[in-house]
Design a protein around this nucleic acid. Sequence first.
DNA 1: TTGAAAGCGCTACCAG
DNA 2: CTGGTAGCGCTTTCAA
Lengths: 332, 332
Amino acid sequence: MSLEEVARKSGVSTATVSRVLNGVDSVKSSTKSRVMKAVSELKYHPNLHARSLAGGRSRTIGVIVSNLDNPFFLDVYRAVEEDCHSHGYEVLLANTAYRSEQLTASIRLMMGRRVAGLAAIVSEMEDSIVDELTESRLPMVFYDVGTAGGNITKIRVNYRRGVERIVEYLAALGHKQLAFIGHHAVLGPIDERRRALFDTVQVVCPDATIRVAADADSLEGGRQAVREILSGGPAPTAIICVNDLMAVGALKELRERGLRVPQDISVTGFDNFRLSEFCYPALTTVHIPRDRIGHTVFTSLATDSKDTNTLGKEFVIEPELVVRDSTGAARG
Amino acid sequence: MSLEEVARKSGVSTATVSRVLNGVDSVKSSTKSRVMKAVSELKYHPNLHARSLAGGRSRTIGVIVSNLDNPFFLDVYRAVEEDCHSHGYEVLLANTAYRSEQLTASIRLMMGRRVAGLAAIVSEMEDSIVDELTESRLPMVFYDVGTAGGNITKIRVNYRRGVERIVEYLAALGHKQLAFIGHHAVLGPIDERRRALFDTVQVVCPDATIRVAADADSLEGGRQAVREILSGGPAPTAIICVNDLMAVGALKELRERGLRVPQDISVTGFDNFRLSEFCYPALTTVHIPRDRIGHTVFTSLATDSKDTNTLGKEFVIEPELVVRDSTGAARG
DNA sequence: TTGAAAGCGCTACCAG
DNA sequence: CTGGTAGCGCTTTCAA
């Protein structure tokens, strides 16, 4: 069923039906209501593909994330979604599950759908892809990769700062045996977070030891990483987790082993996702404002936020330490 | 940039380029590679809107859920996504946040995009919408609403059974003062879960009292509902939560008030989402297999799963009680 | 194995 | 205020 049928049924041209459907005001109200009647009787739904094809411009924004299972990414998406909907945009979501093939496929899909802009909230991205995207004219937001300018907005979290806050805080509590739990994407050779941690420890408490374990970015992964740490030598006095999700998994494993947090061992997270306040013990973490990330994505990619458009700029997010109950003085 | 440019650059017709891009084998391999070369040099991305318009059929499935913040829905989506991707389908996601206007908008959007099938994992849906969708020819999956047959697959969770398991279990533990925590969508006048609970209590332990509180379907909502319960009279010995998410929120509030779970008060959830094993105490709940729901969605809506197609059938999901640490004998 | 051309359903421009 | 119509970029016969 098409515009034409509606036009026929209401005795007008397709052009007029189109005008009615698009709210162009230059239509006599009697005509308009006749058309509307036909539309609802026919249960007509305009073909959005045809519309985009004919119309050219698009009012949809694409969002690609690494791991939907981690509420961090979901929060970012929700923030984008909220802004989009309140401004008449649609959002298309894609999840890579940290698989680079899937990233490529998702980018293809988004470009094929001719999104108005694309946000890649995907920390691990090969340089070649970054370059290719940078060269394209597509408005984009990168997260922690690439460089701002032209059609590229860059959002960067100052991890180093966040890590410093955590290490300084733990050092002040007397912790000298540390462990770091990351997921695989964050323990690659070129990883900033891991390096930031080592550098900071070097400076803040050079006499501290630090061990590393990696697993999947999930609750189970956090748990598993703790097993790895605990089976590999003397228990550390504090475990620094790359994010809250893994931290919650870590808490579970410690609890099961009868290790009390924070009396026996301290745990820190990263992100300050909502659950971090509800888990036990409530997590000491570092706050990353997902809503601000989402808003920045929107203002950068929505073409009609003319004066407020932020495309091409770089945004640095400064983390703040949030102290709760999962950290305490080092034992002994 | 279009097919035509690729055609020109590689010295063939658009028809041939189209054939190459769609993997039609009747193309000489020398031609094929010439085309491929042009494609990659031009960084050509086919316009998917044009493709759908011209092609007719669609290989995308729409999924509408009530509340993305609740991992239950996300798990269902992920399961659908997995099946879809491994069979060359795309998934389009929409979130209603329990708002019926948003449901309408999402349905419109999906129909406009000409999805091959649509899953509405949205327990609250007005009859008029259910009817309209049932009349349409669109393959659909309903969750807990509507009736199976024709183009409608229905997935129904046997809540009554789940509630019975919980109540029987709590009754056996000696609980007589119960409370029920739900979210607003589930405490409407026509709600099955609430009624199932009252009926069951009536039968299983007629001498038990039961109070009810409602709040948002979120961690915070669960917490708030407990406040409501606890400020409204003597504390119950067991709190039955409509789902795990609210249960985790409830645990937090109880913990903060110094009430021990399960010694002072028992708590049950519903869904058995991943976190229920990782929270403290680990949640006694009822398992609802989200992956099975997701698979059923796929086999019903994917048009090419010919022989295995399940469209039009009804699937009843039988919940299973999962006992963990959040429940124990009634105090006193 | 390839090309020409007729749409797919809609928007937007030009007339009237 | 309304109609006619030329595309938008692609797929798909039908011929060659």
